[in-house]
Simulated scan of single mutants.
Amino acid sequence: DNHAVREAACACIAELGSKINSDVVRPHVPTLIEALLESFKDDSWPVRDAACIACGNFIQCFPEECRPQMDSLYPLFFANLQDNIPSVRQGAAVALANVARAYGAESLQFLLQKVQEGLEGIEKQPASTEKYSGLDKGPATYGVVKKLRDNDMDLHTNQTMYSCGSLAPKMGRGRSGGCMDHQFRKPVEPWELTEGCVHLLAELSQIPAAVKQVAELLPLVAQAAAKHHYPQHQVLLETVCKQ
């Protein structure tokens, strides 16, 4: 139940696809891709991130063998593209670019349409995040937003104490706890998808066949970056400037 083991397993599968003789790995592709699909739905975001990147690499190595699973994989890729965690969004962009390399024009057109929708979706971003009133408005600790109830003294008085390095009580799947709560999620906001699409557009720009179509979407990127009506606009602007 250690999330780090599952994360490492995803990385190993990606390595199998890229570094082991393809004829040796090919008979095992259905089993391996099923394992990645399962990991893609993991409660722990580092596992989802690793599974996403591994899937992109694996698809590039075995495009035809993975094709039957694409209907299941695309929604998972797009879910990661709008994840609350910035590095997960970046990983999804890298993986989807590998999908475009594997399947060419058929995938590229689909992805560019999704990018356009994501960039235009910034119009739906609320002016504030007051609707998430259940979250603490103070600075986040180690990137994890605290719920207001976490400051209830009754929850932290006369309770059993454990060492940070201890695995007791056991941290199983579907349960939070420990120094790093990798299971934290909050409702997705439109700007997060827009930012993920900026990352994806940057990755697609490295594919020669996509350069012209990527350039045609740049005005939408500029328009999205010009929206300053929500608190996180600086994050999106920073991402645009770094690409």
Rank of each mutant, 00 (worst) to 15 (best):
L32A: 09
S166H: 14
P86F: 13
P63V: 02
E203M: 08
W191G: 04
D42Q: 10
V88N: 07
R185Q: 08
S166N: 12
D71W: 10
N2Y: 02
S128Q: 02
R175L: 14
A79K: 14
G56F: 00
A105H: 00
Q234N: 09
A51C: 07
H156M: 13
A50L: 00
P187K: 03
A35W: 08
F58A: 10
K131G: 11
F110C: 06
C66W: 02
L96V: 01
Q232V: 15
H229L: 09
Q213A: 03
E203L: 04
R48P: 13
E120R: 11
L236Q: 06
L217E: 14
E15Q: 10
A225S: 07
W45H: 11
G165N: 10
L36M: 13
D150E: 15
I85A: 03
W191Q: 04
F62S: 10
A8V: 09
N57L: 13
Y230V: 01
P126A: 01
A224V: 02
Q206I: 13
A92H: 03
K147W: 14
K186G: 10
E34C: 07
D23N: 08
Q183G: 15
R185P: 00
H182V: 07
I33R: 12
H28F: 01
P231Q: 07
G17T: 00
L218F: 01
R26E: 04
D150V: 08
D83P: 02
P231C: 13
L236A: 03
D1I: 15
V235A: 06
L108K: 08
Q234K: 09
L135N: 02
V144S: 09
L119V: 03
F184G: 05
L16Q: 08
V24Y: 11
Q82W: 01
Y230L: 05
P169M: 12
H182Q: 15
L108F: 12
T160N: 15
P190R: 00
C66Y: 01
L201G: 08
A215W: 12
V115P: 09
P86G: 01
A8D: 11
R185E: 11
A97T: 00
T194Y: 07
S205Q: 15
E130P: 06
E203G: 02
T141M: 12
A51V: 01
E106M: 12
E189P: 10
M161R: 11
L217P: 15
L32P: 12
P139N: 12
I122C: 08
